[in-house]
Amino acid sequence: MSMSMKKVSTAPRRTKLALAVAAIAVSTTAAVPQAFSATPTAVSTTVVGARVLASVSSLNVRTGPGAAYTRVGALSGGSFVLGVVNNGWLKISSGPYAGRYTSAGYLTVVKPPATAAAGSTVTGWVALTGGIPANVHTAPGFKYTVGRTLASGTAITGKVVDADWIRLNGTGGYVNRGTIETLSANVTSVNGSLPAWALCPVNRAYNSPQPFDPGYTATTRRYLNCNAVRSLDALQSAYKAAFGHYASIDLAYRTYSEQQYWYTTLGPKYANAPGASNHGAGLAVDFQEWEGHTTEFDWGGAGSNWLRANGGKYGFTQPYAYGTDGESYHFNFAG
């Protein structure tokens, strides 16, 4: 199943987007502390990351900010959500409950993690999805052999080696920190709903020059997982040395809303369902594509061939067999 989508001739394509999830407690196993102020002093527009308290067995999602509004769903304890808090209610900003509300009193703020020092312990889950596993190397670096892989959602615990590598406890081996997320064991609940602090901007010099739907231009900022950005910068330096210019990028991180748009527009052949795309994990890049035109990133193109041969040196892999219906321009950051 494809993880990105086709551009239609010269018409623009695609979308940048939104974030999250939500609502009020049905039952709890313990008294629940209030995590947010019930009466903020001003109207907030700031998106926050939050988690449903583990002591809450079910948290209602409602159509409006109050218990009198219709219940439309529920969140389980520990679920990660994004939204804006006002008057004791969080308005969900992405995911299947975008635009709905949940009681902020049953949420705790998820703050940006401090940079883990070498030797500290990290616990998390493989963020890659869509059947793409994370690579486990025999030593901390892309140049070392991939001894095995870890499937999506696999729980890991390990010691921090440096900014980019974790040594796995027990089984050993090394995974790139970019392939591991620490927000939720339910990786689909985070996919497409990453808070701003979990992403880093991609150099605009890499952007494709042509505009495409819906609203992308040569100056539209793209984002990726921060470890993936560092690797992409190294890849781009090597690409420019080989070709005299950077490898043009169409898309990187996509929010839940954007993924929903393309899944609805193009169907499962060219877009994974929301919550199941590596773009939503900030771990996928679409290099330039332009249907009806020959480009360097088509099957057999010089750029595509170079990326397939060299991308792994920087943690980026092409998941499709050469020359198939798969997308020649799509690469995942698998570490």
Rank of each mutant, 00 (worst) to 15 (best):
A74I: 07
S76M: 11
G77K: 12
G78I: 11
G78C: 10
V81E: 03
V81F: 08
G83W: 06
G83N: 07
N86A: 03
G88M: 04
W89H: 14
W89P: 11
K91S: 00
I92M: 13
S93A: 14
S94A: 15
S94P: 09
P96Q: 15
A98S: 10
A98Q: 14
A98F: 01
G99H: 09
R100G: 03
Y101L: 05
Y101M: 09
Y101P: 08
T102A: 10
T102V: 02
A104P: 04
G105F: 02
T108A: 11
V109L: 11
V109D: 06
V109A: 09
K111Q: 12
K111P: 00
P112Q: 12
P113R: 08
P113W: 00
P113G: 08
A114K: 13
T115C: 00
A116S: 12
A118H: 01
A118R: 02
S120N: 09
T121C: 03
V122T: 13
V122W: 04
T123G: 00
T123K: 13
G124R: 01
G124L: 06
V126S: 10
V126T: 12
A127P: 04
A127S: 13
L128M: 04
P133M: 07
P133Q: 05
A134P: 06
H137L: 05
T138F: 01
G141K: 03
K143T: 15
K143W: 00
Y144A: 11
Y144S: 14
Y144V: 07
T145I: 01
V146C: 06
V146K: 07
V146A: 03
V146P: 01
G147H: 12
G147S: 10
T149C: 09
S152I: 06
G153C: 09
G153H: 07
G153E: 04
T154W: 10
T154D: 08
A155C: 03
I156C: 11
T157E: 14
D162M: 03
D164G: 14
D164V: 03
W165S: 13
R167S: 14
N169P: 04
G170N: 15
G170H: 03
T171D: 13
T171M: 02
G173W: 01
Y174D: 14
V175D: 05
N176F: 06
R177T: 10
R177M: 09
T179N: 01
T179M: 08
T179W: 06
T179Y: 07
I180Y: 08
E181A: 07
T182Y: 00
L183D: 12
L183E: 15
L183Y: 12
S184V: 02
S184K: 02
A185R: 05
N186G: 00
N186Y: 11
V187W: 02
V187Q: 06
V190S: 09
N191W: 00
N191Y: 07
N191E: 15
S193I: 11
S193D: 15
L194H: 10
P195I: 13
A196G: 13
W197C: 02
W197Y: 15
C200T: 15
P201K: 13
V202L: 09
N203S: 08
N203I: 03
R204Y: 05
Y206E: 09
Y206H: 13
Y206K: 14
N207W: 14
Q210V: 14
F212V: 04
D213N: 14
